[in-house]
Design a protein around this nucleic acid. Structure first.
Lengths: 197, 197, 197, 197
DNA sequence: AATGAATGAGTGTTCATTCAT
DNA sequence: GATGAATGAACACTCATTCAT
């Protein structure tokens, strides 16, 4: 499988440089020329590994979405779980760290993938909806365990999701500074559980 | 005045159809051809009223941003103000209703104007930053009045902003259904002030 | 005929400003917008008096060509005429002065009307050919009177024509300075009759 | 080298057809479509080899100007040179032959490049000024050697330049017939040196 | 597998001309 | 007669994609 290994490397090489170029210039601002120039391959080679400019973008998108997805998984919403606050904070720290170590990809998701085309939008929407549903389920369980007061769970889930997104946007996408994930996560969780008053 | 009135109508006619086309196809997906076809005018007529495709877009963008801005204004953060909860809820209702009655424009801001070009990005960023700063200021005052517990105000403001954005995205942009602004606003404010626990 | 008088004035008004605009911006660089703006009339008015942008240009061209033509006429090539040298110098002075007092038009003929379109080219060519033929005829007579030595009259006429054109180009079109028509004409005539050696 | 050779051929192919199209239709009359249709290449291919329509034109222009420049060079204006008459005639023959074997290019310079844009005009003007200065210098030397009678050298140079230009225009640009360069050059030189009287 | 020259559909924009008022 | 808003054909140029080598 030497061939396929070399091929895999080629793919990665293109993918990595496409990531940088997209993050830097945006989807529309990045031409296939820019990508192949950055990757050091010929134009034709690009199309040997990817169907289109859009396809390479979609692949990058899937990559981060699945990375983020796995950061979220693993919350124990069963009855005998660890204190919710700790669990939530742990998840949030993982998400923030994932975003931080994939700044370019995160920037793409937050800035470039929005309103791009229907397929991409559907993908982002699906991811969002998954999180929303997961949060609603978690709130339902929490309410059953009386860890969470009765509330409009759909709105509450939406608020949490939005808060986390905005935190990522502000502290990861907009800023280049390193991130104090622990304390930010703690503040977010405290805000969510205890409110401001 | 007849002339300028007719001209104003023409402009609006183009602007309105541009709005629909942008909302439907996105900035890059919408060609000037699409817009003039939708508006039922000739290509040249478009350029009689607008300098460029970008210029129409910017105008639409400015329109909603200033509408939203005026929805936010008017919070009394002085010491003798009405209860914060009520004020916040009032603002939020106004924002939600503004967004609801400008669904296409709101969609554009949330979906199409992101990552478009530097000037547009800067405009959105500025709007965002303005809100963030306003929220931080409001939290500072609230903390002084002991209406708000001590907290990381930057993170808290970010969370609120994100929550509101996501609520608009979910209930206005994603959905076509009419909106129960009052109860959603109430839920958001309650979430923000009291938290979930 | 008050109407036609007013109409005539309108025409002139447009014509004069078109002249300035063409002289300043060139034929292709001048838009109908520029002309009507300069003339202070509406776009439609322009087309009330002229068939097209090209037509107004042609009219300006004809104007100077006929002015120049009449500067040339009147040479007495009969046997009992005044000394040829004096006559030639007189003609040349008239031509130079005509060109000088119509600098803008002259500039147009020398710079803008060249290679414009077939009709205009044909007009310039015809003017040129007329002068060439006239010069050949003059040389033929001069040779008969033994005022001119036998020579290749076609080449000689071409040389004279070229010399005069270049003189106009250099001292009228390229320069804004006032012109010492007498002495330049004298130098040209002396060059033509006696040569340099 | 094969690649660059093929590329060179492609360039020439486009250049040559652009030459014909420009010569036939003029700069403004020739669209990029016309050029690529004539050259039998796709629109994009044109832009692979040239930056713009203007750039091809400039290249063609530079080509003939430098060819003509080298036809002029090499006159020995030192004191021990060959008889001026012979030298002048030789130069003129070279110029005429260069023009003759580049009829399309010459047509472009004489007809299409005039009044095109400032950069092109400046180029032509510079060429002209160079010749004028060279002629004035030659006349100054000739006067010192008493080969040339005292005269207004600026006017004389202008006359010679104009004569040569007009000869090229008449016998090369306007006519398709083959050219008797020798005898025309002889007639021009004789006219210049001995005059007509 | 790798190349990069070639492609051509598509873009935003201009401007001479028309015509309803 | 006068207006200027409206028109739409035409333009130079771009770039994702293909394919002969």
């Amino acid at each position: 499988m030497t061939r396929s290994k070399r091929a895999e490397e080629r793919r990665s090489q293109i993918l990595e440089h496409a990531l940088l170029v997209f993050a830097h210039q945006g989807y529309h601002g990045a031409s296939v020329s820019d990508i192949v120039k950055a990757a050091g391959v010929a134009r034709g080679t690009f199309y040997l590994y990817f169907d289109s400019k859009e396809a390479v973008f979609r692949e990058l998108l899937d990559e981060l979405l699945s990375t983020l997805r796995s950061s979220v998984r693993g919350m124990d919403i069963g009855p005998s779980a660890a204190p919710m606050q700790e669990q939530l904070q742990g998840i949030l720290v993982r998400i923030l760290r994932t975003a931080e170590s994939n700044r370019a990809l995160t920037r793409i998701i937050f800035r470039e993938a929005v309103g791009l085309d229907e397929a991409v939008d559907a993908k982002l929407q699906g991811f969002n909806d998954g999180l929303q549903a997961w949060l609603v389920a978690a709130l339902t369980v929490g309410e059953g365990l009386e860890l969470v007061r009765p509330t409009d769970r759909d709105v509450a889930a939406t608020c949490i999701l939005g808060a986390v997104r905005q935190v990522i946007d502000r502290y990861v996408v907009q800023s280049d500074a390193p991130l104090d994930a622990e304390s930010i996560a703690a503040a977010v969780v405290r805000f969510s559980l205890e409110g401001l008053a």
